[in-house]
């Protein structure tokens, strides 16, 4: 196993750790963090495998920078929405369902 592959596996691990937390946590803040950890996992996979025999492929690096900006934007909206949910329902969880 090359170091690049090891890092890629770490990325896969982060993805599933995040997915676990997204599934079991109730409070919205850890769930939003969990999505960010999943995103970091994907970014690590993208960057780790970019190391090739003749040097580093810059394209995945550029994709990750784009991905980070997208993730920052989505997280900002998610946090603001969480504040509104907490304000409207009295708790920052989704247990108070109006549907289903």
């Amino acid at each position: 196993m090359t170091p690049a592959q090891l890092y890629a596996l770490v990325g896969i691990g982060l993805f599933f750790v995040g997915l676990y937390a997204l599934g079991v946590r109730q409070h919205l803040l850890p769930r939003i963090l969990a999505l960010n950890i999943m995103g970091s996992g994907v970014f690590v996979v993208l960057v780790a495998l970019a190391r090739r025999s003749d040097g580093v492929d810059p394209v995945p690096h550029a994709m990750v920078i784009t991905g980070i900006v997208v993730a920052v934007s989505a997280t900002a909206l998610a946090l603001r929405l969480m504040l509104r949910v907490a304000h409207a329902t009295g708790s920052a969880t989704l247990t108070d369902t109006g549907d289903e």
Binding site: Q5, A8, S53, G55, V56, D57
Partner: peptide, 21 residues
């Protein structure tokens, strides 16, 4: 699922320079 995906990742060829060249 993580174990399965990890084994898939190890099968990615990783040869060639992708778009680097």
């Amino acid at each position: 699922l993580a174990f399965g995906l990890a084994s898939v990742v190890l099968q990615i060829p990783g040869t060639g320079s992708a778009l680097r060249s």
